[in-house]
């Protein structure tokens, strides 16, 4: 039995800003369920001596020198922009979120746990 419920998919669709019909939600619930179950089987196969990984290659510490490389001109930066003004990207007014969207990452997890 899959751990993915229809409510999960609705939530994900909302977070991803994707509108889905009832039929699509139904279909996606089943498909995601199959994927999660498949991964679960792989997890069963991996013994306790196999550590979890987020990267397929056994690499660590790949760093870049702090040296300035190539950079775009404002024209180049904006070449593919749908709209621009004053050398800046022009985007629709954002009414639902305030300017605090970023730079708070662990507020809820960290400061007042």
């Amino acid at each position: 039995m899959s751990e993915i419920s229809r409510t999960d998919v609705e939530h994900l669709a909302k977070l991803a800003h994707i509108t889905m019909t009832d039929a699509e939600l139904e279909k996606m619930t089943n498909e995601l369920g199959v994927i999660v179950d498949s991964v679960k089987r792989i997890q069963e196969a991996a013994g306790e001596d196999v550590p979890a990984t987020s990267h397929p290659l056994p690499l660590t510490n790949v760093f870049r020198e702090d040296t300035v490389g190539h950079v775009f001109t404002a024209e180049e930066s904006l070449a593919s922009a749908p709209d621009a003004e004053d050398s800046r990207f022009k985007v629709p007014a954002i009414l639902t979120e305030a300017e605090d969207a970023v730079t708070s990452s662990v507020a809820q997890e960290g400061a007042h746990r």
Partner: peptide
């Protein structure tokens, strides 16, 4: 730092908009 966290574009304040960026 002279450059950004994940790119070699300059980390500088006060320049013309969108001139300290790369892809």
């Amino acid at each position: 730092t002279a450059t950004k966290m994940f790119s070699s574009a300059p980390n500088a304040f006060g320049d013309e908009p969108n001139t300290n960026v790369n892809e």
